[in-house]
């Protein structure tokens, strides 16, 4: 199953903002990429916080 949030890796600067605001902590920031685990509650907070517009909804 595709996740609700998709990451544009070219825009993501691995700043950690989305990880910090995710209320269910499903985003993990590895050294060189983000991973979104199951359990997203579709609150869109990560999209709002992202400074570079790297996150969007998978619609």
């Amino acid at each position: 199953m595709d996740s609700y949030i998709i990451v544009d890796e070219k825009k993501c600067g691995l700043c950690g903002g989305c990880v910090a605001v995710c209320p269910v902590k499903v985003i993990i920031m590895y050294k060189d990429h983000l991973k979104i685990n199951d359990g997203c509650i579709k609150c869109d907070k990560c999209i709002k916080v992202c400074p570079s517009g790297a996150l969007s909804k998978n619609e």
Binding site: G16, G17, V19, A20, V21, K48, P51
Partner: peptide, 26 residues
């Protein structure tokens, strides 16, 4: 572990940041 503050939750310390408390910077 910096702004992402991923590990506190693993040891029972709630560190989820509300949007109004977060500066989004570039």
């Amino acid at each position: 572990d910096g702004v992402e503050s991923y590990l506190p939750g693993k040891v029972g310390i709630n560190s989820v940041c509300s949007l109004k408390d977060m500066y989004s910077c570039y």
